[in-house]
Amino acid sequence: MTILFAVFLLSLLVIIAVAIIRAENLFVALMLTTIFSLLMATNFFILDAADVALTEAAIGAGITTVIFLGALALTSEHEKPFVAVPWLALPVVAVTAALLIFASFDNPRLGDPEAPIHQHVVPWYLEQTPKLVDIPNVVTAILGSFRAFDTLGEVFVIFAACIGVLFLLSARKPSETRCTAPASVGLSQHLIPKVAGRFILPFIILFGFYVQFHGDFGPGGGFQAGAIVATGLILFALLEGEERALRAFPRWIMMAMAAGGALLYALVGVAGIAMGGKFLDYSVLSSDPIAGQHLGILLIEAGVGITVCGSLLLIFHAFAARESF
């Protein structure tokens, strides 16, 4: 039954991808992309990847859409009709597809328990996590401890995007396009979104904190929590307008969050060296190695959440405030 459902969802995914290509209005294409992401998240859930599903829903469908909307507002939503004949594209794409389908016949079948990836490395994670790290969510254990260096890199990836967007959008506009648009007042004149938004806002933030601190036990963690809290604060900015949002939550706080979280993560790693272990070795942080692991994961997850939240907010505001720049 599940497999039929999965086949149905996957086919829908292909159909929507085709629809995205064919849509000539970029707003429509963007909405279809959001649906695509949500479908993708559902697929991930069927394939037992709860953490990834949550992240894809929060970041892929949520934040990405908001950033695209911000950019669409600054550009235009109509695409010029498509004329070029894809002489180059067709062979490139056809070769890629052929190569992948050719390779797929030797791939392990979906769900095959004998597949190599279930035999090597991962059994060790499943076996040792209760003994060495002792948190129920193995995904968080790998993310936060066994492969914590990847996660550190990931935090700096989002920080790099934040620095980049701020740098690019702080350039002076060419003089002819400069305008002094009045600061946006958001949706504060519209009663229904205002009331409904204010009502769900606290719950979004609360849910964000739940996801942050429950990441050890269930799906969730810093990335998802940071994205969810950022979504809540972006909703606030949409409801109240840029100016009020920035007064309530000024830019320097966001920058301090984005930089501070990344710094916190790196410093936890350095603490490992200072206490006589390796970089990102949490076992030495406390006299009991397992308590040390718990402390380390708690701290770095906090660092991740703070940086993700701060960076995403800065990126959103950089786009939103550009109009009246």
């Binding site: 990847a49 990836i117 991962v122 790998i142 993700v308």
Partner: peptide
């Protein structure tokens, strides 16, 4: 199910 690809994809999504 295997947790490692999930960890990698969390990174890739970001």
């Amino acid at each position: 199910s295997n947790p490692l690809p999930q960890v990698l994809i969390l990174t890739a999504i970001v």
